[in-house]
């Protein structure tokens, strides 16, 4: 692997940490309408990478997320790998770089990822079904705003400085 690509992976990790920190800072007042910016970047990038780079994206995303989030590493890795595989499959069927599809998929996958983590948390914390439904309902605003961000900024996020060696011309 060339030095450029090594640097690109490191830069991707830094962008993910910053976006994750930014979304946390935006949500410090308790607002539920904060998009999952880091996940939107991952989805924007996965729509444009070679399949062989998928494990690398998952690894970098897990490390970046584990730095700030409280979710267990295995849960993060399983969730991110599952969603990346799903997106790789979906991009063969849909044009995920087109505005409508990317917004739809980003919103749905952010909800699915957050619901996976919330489900695990509910399972391990012994939370009953009623509080869990409340938690799921609280995830909808974040998924909605993530879809909007993907619609408006998806291509821009995928073209953040330093990430060009990871993008493929084929996609």
């Amino acid at each position: 692997m060339s030095a450029q690509r090594w640097i690109a992976w490191i830069v991707l990790g830094a962008w993910l940490v910053w976006l994750h920190a930014l979304q946390a800072w935006l949500g410090s007042g308790g607002s539920a309408w904060v998009p999952d910016l880091a996940l939107v970047l991952v989805f924007s990038l996965v729509a444009r990478i070679e399949p062989k780079d998928a494990p690398g994206i998952v690894l970098v995303a897990v490390v970046a997320r584990a730095a700030l989030a409280v979710d267990p590493g295995a849960a993060l890795a399983a969730g991110l790998l599952g969603l990346v595989l799903l997106e790789l499959l979906a991009r063969g069927l849909f044009e995920l770089t087109a505005p409508a599809w990317r917004a739809l998929f980003a919103g749905a996958l952010v909800f699915a990822f957050d619901a996976w983590l919330a489900g695990l948390h509910a399972l391990h914390a012994g939370i009953g079904p009623v509080p869990f439904v409340r938690v799921l309902a609280a995830l909808v605003p974040a998924a909605f705003t993530s879809a909007i961000v993907s619609l408006a900024l998806g291509p821009a996020l995928a073209h953040l400085p330093g990430l060009s060696p990871l993008r493929s011309r084929r996609w």
């Binding site: 994750h20 920190a21 979304q23 946390a24 800072w25 935006l26 949500g27 410090s28 308790g30 904060v34 999952d36 730095a67 700030l68 989030a69 409280v70 979710d71 957050d114 983590l117 919330a118 948390h121 938690v135 609280a138 995830l139 974040a142």
Partner: peptide, 15 residues
């Protein structure tokens, strides 16, 4: 705290 805000959506938790 690693970040002064919610780092995990749907949770009230901190690293």
């Amino acid at each position: 705290c690693a970040v002064p805000g919610e780092a995990s959506i749907g949770r009230e938790a901190r690293r």
